[in-house]
């Protein structure tokens, strides 16, 4: 199915004032493209193997000062992607057979425009941006990662969700022959996730197609994944093949697996511990002997994005809705 030529003012260009002001504040806070971003680029150029395809025409968005990205090797070698195995090194080791192209995404549910869309039809109408985000895993480790993608909201608006669209549900591809982890019922495959419509439309929520300026490697969720930087990593579903606008809160994989340990919201919150471990601090992933004696750092509410997103949860009991 084709997406018709966009109207003169695309819905994506109409930004609510609150969000607009937030964006302003974010940019102001960032101030300048920090030395860290330049450093990251210099480092990345050295370390990215030549077989990774560079993405053209990527707009650089300033990163908050003080964020030093992890290396390409760390970002692509230390992953939780149970579809390829449960060890951190499994996704890089076991994803060689995975074919991210051609790729189709089914758009379903409470929207005017639905159907099956090619990767290019989804992505190419939009300007790719680089966003350097903190990434906080529910297992209490973290990284800083230069993602490339587009605001998810800009994409979703093209399908004209109806007033009944209160949530957005996502589903990962099911390919046990290419994803050896799916041959064991560690989770109830395929992996599913969900966001409220407000979370999905928030300008920080990114539909990611690349990292470090190159196409997303399989172990990072090729060819299309979410990045919701104020939530624990498992919310940012990978290798998406289905997006569904729903009226009811959709089921989510980790919540189904262990409802007392993983909630629907899963906002990073140092005050609400995982039943089995503390979320008050995190270990910043860093290779090399120097990191051995580096201590943990305190975890920030909403992973440091409270100024931008806390208002989404006004009146919500965050301890109960963990």
């Amino acid at each position: 199915m084709l997406i018709r030529k966009a109207p003169d003012i695309r819905p994506s260009e109409i930004t609510p004032e609150r969000v607009f002001r937030d964006r302003r504040r974010l940019l102001k806070a960032a101030g300048f493209i920090g030395a860290s971003a330049l450093l990251a680029e210099a480092r990345a150029a050295d370390t990215i193997p030549a077989n990774h395809r560079r993405l053209a025409n990527v707009k650089k968005v300033p990163a908050p000062a003080g964020l030093t990205p992890n290396t390409f090797e760390e970002v692509t070698g230390y992953n939780n992607f149970y579809e390829f195995g449960t060890d951190k090194s499994d996704p890089a080791a076991n994803s060689g057979k995975f074919r991210p192209k051609p790729w189709k995404v089914a758009i379903e549910g409470e929207a005017e425009v639905t159907g099956s869309f090619d990767f290019d039809a989804l992505v190419s109408p939009h300007q790719l941006e680089e966003r350097i985000y903190r990434f906080r895993c529910v297992e209490a480790w973290s990284m800083v990662i230069p993602w490339v993608g587009i605001p998810l909201g800009d994409v979703l608006k093209r399908f004209k969700p109806s007033s009944k669209a209160k949530y957005v549900a996502f589903e990962t591809v099911m390919r046990p022959e290419e994803m050896p982890g799916q041959r064991y019922p560690i989770l109830d495959w395929p992996y599913v996730e969900g966001l409220t419509i407000a979370e999905a439309m928030h300008p920080l929520t990114l539909l990611v197609t690349g990292v470090y300026g190159v196409e997303l490697p399989a172990q990072n969720g090729a060819p299309l994944r979410l990045m919701v930087p104020w939530k624990y990593g498992f919310k940012s579903i990978k290798s998406i093949v289905r997006i569904r606008f729903t009226e009811q809160q959709p089921p989510t994989s980790w919540n189904l697996a262990a409802p007392d340990e993983y909630g629907f919201y899963a906002n990073v919150n140092p005050k609400v511990d995982h039943p089995r471990w503390s979320q008050a601090s995190e270990r910043v992933v860093s290779s090399g002997l120097g990191s051995l004696l580096a201590s943990r750092v305190p975890t920030q509410p909403f992973n440091g994005y409270a100024a931008q997103v806390a208002s989404l949860y006004t009146g919500l009991d965050l301890a109960r809705n963990f």
């Binding site: 992890n70 090797e73 760390e74 070698g77 230390y78 951190k88 090194s89 480790w141 270990r283 992933v285 860093s286 290779s287 090399g288 002997l289 990191s291 051995l292």
Partner: peptide, 18 residues
């Protein structure tokens, strides 16, 4: 692995790997 001798690598989270 810690000293990154030959093909041995400890990975990106050495403290926890040890």
């Amino acid at each position: 692995e810690l000293l990154a001798v030959g093909p041995f690598r400890i990975g990106p989270n050495p403290a926890l790997a040890i």
